[in-house]
Every structure is written in structure tokens, then in C-alpha cells.
Amino acid sequence: MKEHHCVSIVPLFNHLTEEEQNQVESLILHRHFRKGETVWQPGEDPLLIIVAKGSMKVYMLSGSGREQLLRLLTPGSYEGVNALLGARAQSIYIDTLEETDACLLRKTDFNALLLKTPSLALKLLEMNAQRMADTENQTRFLMMEKVETRLASYLTALSNENEKDTVEIPMKMKDLSAYLGTTPETLSRKLHLLEEKNIIRRKGKKIGIMDREKLREMAEE
């Protein structure tokens, strides 16, 4: 299998010198996963998982088996740092959403890199702080009483992030509904309602924001 180079596309590593990047690359395990394959689940050895091509979803399972999407991983994204640093993730699962190439780094190798490369440890702190902020944003979504408020807030944030009035939902509607804490049927109804009010225009996963001010007002309700 042709190897894929993850180090240069990951913000965690791409600030390193060429020599340091080559050192990281020498420790990487290259894997190809089929669509729908579980990459990591509770009880397995900690790994740093980097997406080179394709996508994955990180989710939790409740005691009743209900899935709660935490985040999506796209090329350059990574997961597993908390487990590598000793945090227990008893209910975290990582599955592929499509054919995916990934790079894996074992705990012993990762810890050795942190000791040898102080700048890597600092970058890790910076990126984990952003990860915590993203998690807080999702928690804020779920605390909003109305589904339409969560949806409006999500679309507003997505538009601001991309600096465009036309955005593409970066996940399946099933996963978006889980992310927003609702059902696919309810999400579909709320999107249709926004269309009827001429706030958005939807074509598949592409959403055109027609009335940004009204959408912002709904997000703040």
C-alpha cells in the first residue's frame, strides 16, 4: 500500500523542522479503513489517530445505546491525545464515514516526542484549548431549549467560520441531527421551516443564507 504522509498536513506537527517531521514520520503506522469500520473503541490501547484522507466521526454511546456525535475528523484532524495523556475515555468511539487513510502513533512514541520536542508540547496545549472551546460550543447548543435555535446558531457559526453566505453541511443529516441533539425528522422539518420563511435556501447539503439578520435573531432567542 502506498504510504500517506500525515505529518505535513497536521497543525500539531507542521510547525516542526523538517528533521523533526521526518522523525515523527518514521514512527507513524499507516492504515487503510473501510467505510463504517471502527477505528478505536473503549478498552483498546491509546493511539493518536490522524486522518490523511477520508473522514471519521467521534461519538459517545449512552447507557441506552443512544449515539451522541462529538465531532467530525477530516484530513489533517486528529483524535486520541487525551487518552495518550492518561485520560479515560470509556464511552468514546471512532468510526469511518467513508474509505479512509489514517496515520497512527503509539503512546510510547508520542510521549517520547513530547519529551524531545518542547514546541510540540506547547502546540498541543494550544490546540487542546481550542478543542475545549469547540466542546463548550456544542454543550451550549444542547442547552438551547428549541431545536430551531440550535440549528440557527449552528448555521450562523458555520457561515461565520467560512466567511460565506453559502455553506455546505460537513456531515450527513443523520449526524447533524445527533450533533444538535434532535432527530433527523425534526431537523428536516426545521430546515423546511427556515426555507418557508425565506431565511435559507437549501439544495442537498448546500445551504444559502438569504436573511442573515433574521437567522442571527433566531440563534439568540
Rank of each mutant, 00 (worst) to 15 (best):
S64D: 14
E67A: 08
Q68Y: 14
Q68K: 14
Q68F: 13
L69Y: 02
L69A: 03
L69N: 04
L69F: 03
L70E: 05
R71E: 08
R71M: 10
L72H: 10
L73T: 01
G76T: 00
G76C: 02
Y78M: 02
G80Q: 00
V81G: 01
N82P: 07
N82W: 05
A87I: 12
A87Q: 13
A87W: 07
Q90T: 13
S91E: 13
S91Q: 14
S91I: 15
I92T: 08
I94P: 00
I94Y: 00
L97K: 09
L97M: 12
L97S: 06
E98I: 06
E98A: 07
E99V: 07
E99A: 11
T100R: 00
A102T: 02
C103E: 02
C103M: 06
L104V: 07
L104R: 03
R106F: 09
R106M: 10
T108G: 08
T108P: 07
T108N: 14
D109E: 12
F110Q: 02
F110D: 02
A112F: 07
L122M: 08
K123D: 04
N128E: 15
N128F: 08
A129Q: 14
R131F: 09
R131G: 06
R131Y: 08
R131N: 10
M132N: 12
M132L: 15
D134K: 10
E136W: 04
Q138H: 08
T139W: 12
L142W: 04
K146N: 10
V147E: 04
V147N: 06
T149Y: 04
T149G: 05
R150W: 01
Y154D: 01
L155W: 00
T156N: 15
E161K: 15
E161G: 10
E163A: 15
E163I: 11
K164L: 13
D165V: 12
T166V: 11
E168K: 15
E168W: 09
E168C: 11
K172Y: 08
K172R: 15
K174M: 11
S177M: 06
L180K: 02
T183Y: 05
E185H: 12
T186E: 06
L187E: 05
S188G: 09
S188W: 09
S188Y: 13
H192L: 12
H192G: 09
H192Y: 11
L193F: 10
L194H: 04
E196A: 07
E196M: 12
I199H: 03
I199T: 06
I200C: 05
I200L: 09
I200K: 03
R201C: 08
